[in-house]
Design a protein around this nucleic acid. Structure first.
Length: 453
RNA sequence: GGCCCCAUCGUCUAACGGUUAGGACAACGGGUUUUCAAUCCGUCAAUCGGAGUUCGAUUCUCCGUGGGGUCACCA
C-alpha cells in the first residue's frame, strides 16, 4: 500500500451476526481480517451484530467465539450491538435533526393492518463511487434505493445504521468482509456522509462456493467450523487451506504456518473470483501439518481421539502410542478421527495384542512352509542376540538384513512381518518389532513356527 | 427481472503485453520396497465466445455468454 496508510494505526473488525454457526465462509472472513491486522500491527475488533434479537441466539455467539478461539484467531476487543442501543439512538436523533432522516408512519409489513413509525433515511439520490482494495472502482446509482429504513423505531436501529455508527465509533480503517457486502456499501456510505464519518477502505473478499458453484450449503462446508475440530482436523491446516482459498504468497509455498502466512499476507493478493470449498485438499493440508508436528505434540493433539478402550489396554503406554501414531500418520492417517475408525476396524490392533491369522498367509508367494519355519527359526536366533535395551528398528534391521539378503528378502521378511502383524499389508517388520518389544516379538515368532509345523 | 461483482486444467491457483501457459490437490502410469503406505519420476488436463487496440494478447477496451451476489420494518 502507500506511505499514508502505514503511519495510521490499522483497525479492522469481524462482525458476524449470531444467527448461524461460524462456518468456513465466515471463518475465512475472520481470518483475512486477522491476517491483515497482524501483518499491519493493527487491532482486530470482534463485534457481534445482534440488533435483531428475534433471530440472534446465544449458542451461535458461543459457537462463533469457540470457533475463533480454536482457530487461534485472537481479537483485541469485543462488542455486542445489543448493548449499544443508546449510542445508535443518539445518532438516529442527530440524523433526524440534521434533516437526513425522518420518522415515517406507515402500514406494518407484518400485514396485520397495524400502523408503525419507522425511521427512513433521506436519500440524496446520487451516484456513489468507492474503491475496493481487491477490485477496482465500483459505482452505484443510489436512486433505486429510495428512502430506505434505518431503524424500526428511534430505539431500534437496523443493520446499516448500527454498522456505520460502530465503524465510526470504533475507528475502523478497513472493512474486510464478504462479497455479499458490496451492494450494502452504497447505503452505508450515504449514512457515513450524513454522519460526517470518514470512509474506511473496503475490501470485499470473494465467497466460498459449494461444489456446484452455488452458495455453500449445510451439506458442503456450511457445517460449523467446530465440527472440523471434532473431526480431527488441525486448526493450522484449516487456517492454511482457508487462506489459500483466494490467496497465495506469490511464490511456490503451499504448506505454511500461521506466522509465515501473516508475514506474506497482502490484501491486494486476494483473488476476485469465488472458490469452491474442497475438503479433499484440506485433508492433504491436514496430513502435511500432522507430519510437521513433533512426535510428542502429535501425540498430545491426537489424544482426544484415542479410544478409551485402547487407553485402558494393559499394553498401552504413552511412549508406545507416540510411536504408533507416528507410524500411522506416515501411512493412513489424514485426520485424527481416523484413529478410532482404524482401531475399531482392527487395522493396528497388532501393536497391542498378538494377531490371529491363518497359517496360509505366513508363507511368501509360492514358498513352502518348511522354508518359512526355517527362516523364522533363524530370524528368532538372530534377534535373540540383540539386547533388549537396543532393540529398535535400526538394530533389528541390521541384525536381519544380511541373512534376508542372502536368502531372499521376501522369503525371510514376509513371514516375519505376518508373524508380527497377522496382516498381508502393514508397516515393515523392523518398526513393528521395535514398538512391540523384543519379548513380544520373539513370542509371536515362536507362535508362528508352532502353527506352521 | 433491475443493479453490482466475477471468469486460466475437474478443483485451488501462477504468469501484473512477448513463457513450450508454471505449480498444488485429485486421477492415472512407472521407479524404489518383503507387503501396503510413504517417497521419487512421469502422464492426462485450462486461458468462455466474438470483435477491437497492438508488431504481439491469458493480460487492455467493448459486446455477448455463463456463474455468483443483492434488491426486508434480516444481517
Amino acid at each position: 500500500m502507500n506511505t499514508q496508510e502505514t503511519d495510521k494505526k490499522i483497525v479492522v473488525r469481524f462482525a458476524p451476526s449470531p444467527t448461524g454457526f461460524l462456518h468456513v465462509g465466515s471463518a475465512r472472513t475472520a481470518l483475512f481480517n486477522y491476517l491483515f491486522a497482524k501483518k499491519m500491527k493493527g487491532t482486530l475488533v470482534l463485534r457481534i451484530e445482534d440488533t435483531d434479537l428475534e433471530r440472534s441466539e446465544k449458542h451461535f455467539e458461543e459457537n462463533i467465539i469457540e470457533g475463533l478461539s480454536w482457530l487461534g484467531i485472537e481479537y483485541d476487543s469485543f462488542f455486542r450491538q445489543s448493548e449499544r442501543k443508546e449510542l445508535y439512538t443518539r445518532h438516529i436523533h442527530s440524523l433526524i435533526e440534521s434533516g437526513n432522516a425522518y420518522i415515517s408512519r406507515e402500514q406494518a409489513k407484518s400485514g396485520d393492518g397495524s400502523e408503525v413509525e419507522v425511521v427512513r433515511f433521506k436519500n440524496p439520490n446520487k451516484v456513489v463511487t468507492f474503491t475496493d482494495a481487491i477490485r477496482r472502482e465500483i459505482s452505484f446509482d443510489t436512486t433505486d434505493l429510495e428512502d430506505f429504513v434505518i431503524a424500526k423505531s428511534i430505539t431500534e436501529p437496523l443493520y446499516h445504521l448500527a454498522v456505520v455508527v460502530d465503524d465510526f465509533e470504533m475507528g475502523i480503517t478497513h472493512v474486510i468482509r464478504g462479497e455479499d457486502g458490496i451492494s450494502n456499501t452504497p447505503r452505508q456510505i450515504l449514512i457515513q456522509e450524513a454522519l460526517g464519518a470518514p470512509r474506511p477502505i473496503y475490501a470485499h473478499i470473494p465467497l466460498i462456493l459449494g461444489p456446484d458453484r452455488s452458495k455453500l450449503s449445510k451439506r458442503h462446508g456450511a457445517e460449523p467450523i467446530t465440527s472440523l475440530r471434532d473431526d480431527g482436523f488441525l486448526p493450522e491446516a484449516v487456517i492454511n487451506h482457508l487462506a489459500f482459498l483466494g490467496w497465495n504468497p506469490g511464490d511456490e509455498r503451499e504448506v505454511m504456518k500461521s506466522d509465515e502466512i501473516i508475514e506474506a499476507f497482502e490484501l491486494g493478493g486476494i483473488q476476485k473470483g469465488g472458490a469452491i470449498w474442497n475438503k479433499e485438499k484440506l485433508l492433504w493440508y491436514n496430513s502435511e501439518h500432522i507430519r510437521l508436528l513433533s512426535s510428542t505434540s502429535r501425540y498430545e493433539r491426537a489424544l482426544p481421539f484415542i479410544p478409551s478402550e485402547l487407553r485402558n489396554h494393559k499394553d498401552y503406554s504413552e511412549e508406545k502410542m507416540k510411536k504408533v501414531i507416528t507410524v500411522l500418520s506416515e501411512r493412513e492417517i489424514k485426520k485424527f478421527s481416523d484413529i478410532p475408525h482404524l482401531y475399531s476396524g482392527k487395522f493396528f490392533s497388532y501393536f497391542f495384542e498378538a494377531p490371529e491369522y491363518s497359517k496360509k498367509i505366513l508363507t511368501f508367494k509360492e514358498q513352502n512352509s518348511e522354508h518359512t519355519v526355517l527362516h523364522l527359526e533363524r530370524v528368532s536366533e538372530l534377534l535373540e542376540s540383540v539386547t533388549t535395551s537396543r532393540f529398535n528398528a535400526n538394530s533389528v534391521k541390521e541384525a536381519l538384513w544380511g541373512y534376508a539378503t542372502e536368502n531372499g528378502r521376501g522369503e525371510v521378511l514376509w513371514p516375519l512381518r505376518v508373524a508380527l502383524t497377522g496382516k498381508e499389508k502393514s508397516p515393515d517388520p523392523f518398526t513393528v518389532a521395535e514398538i512391540i518389544g523384543k519379548q513380544e516379538t520373539l513370542k509371536r515368532i515362536s507362535h508362528a513356527i508352532k502353527i506352521s509345523t
